[in-house]
């Protein structure tokens, strides 16, 4: 195990209405086995001991599945490692003497609440508009009465793996939530259970996406590059197909 010394430039902003700026901090003897968030814990303990305000950031499971954490590290959502969330990024990917710039996920639809902590409730509202199968509890048929070919189930699972962190939105030059929205639309349109509401779902979710102020996809593919779960932009192609089918075949 080795340790490194770092300079951090972190976005500090007391609340949504205040102006923010990058503050500089130095941290010595950071173990390379630490996760990125543990490094921030160490910084926050230090700041607290100095009587300064610790950096606010969202986090919870710290194993890459809850989707709560995330920040832009040196210009990249969730940092330099592929297919990991910020909590799974380890300090062995940095070198002693590095300066690391840490900013919140920025997008029109994600207001900053404090420091690195943002409001992503717009993503919940997209799901609320139709990202489910409308089935009540009880009275459902036996699980095996709906056979699904394994490759089809696996394809649906690839899309369903989305953790809703918002890295795709923060990385998109258009501030689009297309990868997020398409992941849910794909999962459900690939499965027999999702067929009944297929058209309405695509139309409703896209409408909500627009209403929240997200942009549209123009194939920059930045979202796919940063997605911690490796969600493919093929899902966006599927969303577009579903949306057009919805418009032209409505009624």
């Amino acid at each position: 195990m080795s340790s490194i010394n770092l300079t951090l430039k972190i976005w500090r902003q007391p609340n949504s209405d205040a102006l923010g700026n990058l503050e500089t901090y130095t941290l010595d003897s950071i173990s390379t086995d630490m996760s990125f968030l543990e490094m921030l814990d160490v910084l926050n303990e230090k700041l607290t001991k100095e009587g300064k305000d610790p950096v606010a950031f969202d986090h919870d499971c710290r194993e890459g599945i809850c989707g709560m954490c995330g920040a832009i590290v040196d210009g990249v959502a969730h940092g330099p490692e592929k297919e990991v969330t910020l909590c799974q990024l380890h300090m062995r990917h940095f070198a002693s003497g590095d300066t690391i710039v840490i900013e919140p996920f920025r997008s029109r639809a994600f207001p900053i609440k404090k420091d690195l902590l943002i409001d992503r409730s717009a993503l919940d509202r997209i799901i609320q508009s139709g990202g489910y199968v409308s089935v009540n509890t009880g009275g459902t048929p036996d699980g095996n009465s709906i056979p699904i070919p394994s490759p089809q189930a696996e394809l649906a699972m690839d899309a369903a793996a989305c953790i809703g962190c918002g890295a795709c939105v923060a990385s998109c030059p258009n501030g689009a939530a297309m990868l997020f929205t398409s992941a849910k639309i794909s999962q459900l349109c690939l499965l027999p259970q999702g067929q009944v509401e297929r058209k309405e779902r695509a139309l409703a979710m896209v409408a909500q996406m627009d209403k929240e102020g997200f942009g549209n996809c123009t194939n920059f593919k930045e979202c796919e590059a940063v997605c911690p779960k490796g969600i493919s932009i093929r899902n966006i192609a599927r969303l577009n197909k579903e949306y057009f089918k919805g418009i032209f075949l409505e009624g």
């Binding site: 199968v133 009880g138 095996n144």
Partner: peptide, 22 residues
């Protein structure tokens, strides 16, 4: 047993055998 039926109906992508069963 009802739980599995409920979750399948919701579109939970459980692992499948090649014949399509759970």
């Amino acid at each position: 047993t009802e739980i599995i039926d409920q979750c399948v109906a919701q579109g939970v992508p459980f692992a499948r055998e090649y014949g399509g069963t759970l």
